[in-house]
Design a binder for these strands. Structure first.
Lengths: 162, 162
DNA sequence: TCCAGACTGTCATACTATAACAGTCCGTTC
DNA sequence: GAACGGACTGTTATAGTATGACAGTCTGGA
C-alpha cells in the first residue's frame, strides 16, 4: 500500500489530491478482489464524489458529467452510485439525499457520519461502542438490529475553533 | 391523565384506537401548553399519521385527505407535517421519506427508531446510552454533536417469533 | 465466431418537496 | 363595532430526487 488511508478528520489544509488518489487505488483493489468491474463511468463518478469531503447530490454529479461532454442522464449516475454503494466505495447520507466517498472501503461497515452544519464536510466515524449500544438497546425491546443509519449534525473541530 | 402512554412495542393485538386517542389527547395538551393552534387540518393529519404504527408518506396522507373530500394539495400536508414536527408530535424517518406519530410528545427528544423490515412497523426507542455513546465518539474527533438521526432496520419481536 | 450477460444510452415517468401569492379567519386595538 | 395585523389555508406552478423500460453496445468465454 503506497500510503496510509486518508485522515478521518480532514483538515482545511490537507492535500486533498492524496485523498482522491488513495480512494481510487483502494477502489481498484476492492474491485479487483471482488471481481467487480470499475468501468470508466463508475470511476469518473467516484472521482467526482471525492472532489471534496462534502456530500454531493446525484444531479450535481450529473451536471458535472454533462459539463465534460459525456452523454449522461439520471440513470447513468444512479446506476454508477448503486454500484459504488454495493461495493462499499461510497455512502449515502439520508438526511441530505447525497453521497460521500468511503475512506476505508476494505473494512467492516456499520459507519456513523458526522456532518458539520457550518462547512458541510462529513467525517466518517467507526466506533464499535455506538453500534453495540444500539444493538443492546434494540435487543431490550426484542428487536434484532441488522442495519443502522446514524447521521449526526453538529460542528467539526475546525469550525468550532474558528 | 386518562391512561398511560401507548406501549413502546405495539403488539399485533393491541387496541390501536387507544393509541390514537392517547396521541390526540397528548397533542391537545402539548399545544395548549405551548400556545400552538392544533387546527382541524393539523389534527386530521395527525390522526391519519396515527392510523398505524407504520410510517406514512406525505402523498399517502394527501390521498387520504382528498378521499375525504377535502381540498388538499401538497402544501396542505407539508405545512401540517411541519407544524407537527415542530411541536414534536410526529417524527420524520429519513430513510423512508415518511412520518410516524410520537408516543411521548411531552418528553425530551433525541429518539432512535427501530424499523421492522417485515411488518414495516416502527418503534421509538429512547436510550440515553446511545446518545451518550455517539456524543462521546464524536467528541473524540473534536466534533460537537447537536442533532442525531438514528434509524435501525431489523426484525421486531413479533416478526422474529413468527 | 457466436453467444450470454453485463453495461450504457435514452426517453418517459413517478415520487418527494417547496415557492409564491391570494384569500380567509380570528383575536386585538381603538 | 370597525379597522388592523398576524396566522392559517387554498391554489397554481415548479424544483429536486429517483426509477422503469427498452434498445444498443461491449466483453469475455464457449
Amino acid at each position: 500500500m503506497p500510503h496510509s488511508p486518508p485522515a478521518r478528520a480532514p483538515q482545511a489544509g490537507h492535500d486533498h489530491q492524496d485523498c482522491v488518489r488513495a480512494a481510487l487505488q483502494a477502489a481498484e483493489r476492492r474491485c479487483a478482489q471482488s471481481g467487480a468491474r470499475l468501468t470508466l463511468v463508475r470511476k469518473r463518478v467516484l472521482e467526482l464524489v471525492w472532489d471534496s469531503h462534502a456530500p454531493v447530490g446525484a444531479y450535481a454529479l450529473l451536471d458535472a458529467l454533462k459539463a465534460e461532454g459525456q452523454n449522461a442522464a439520471p440513470p447513468t449516475v444512479y446506476r454508477a452510485l448503486d454500484f459504488l454503494l454495493e461495493q462499499g466505495l461510497v455512502h449515502r447520507l439520508e438526511r441530505l439525499n447525497a453521497y460521500v466517498g468511503c475512506p476505508h472501503p476494505m473494512g467492516p461497515h456499520s459507519a456513523q457520519f458526522l456532518i458539520c452544519q457550518t462547512c458541510g464536510q462529513v467525517q466518517e466515524l467507526e466506533d464499535p461502542a455506538i453500534g453495540a449500544a444500539i444493538r443492546a438497546g434494540a435487543e431490550r425491546l426484542g428487536f434484532l438490529a441488522t442495519r443502522q443509519t446514524i447521521e449526526v449534525e453538529g460542528l467539526c473541530q475546525a469550525c468550532r475553533t474558528a
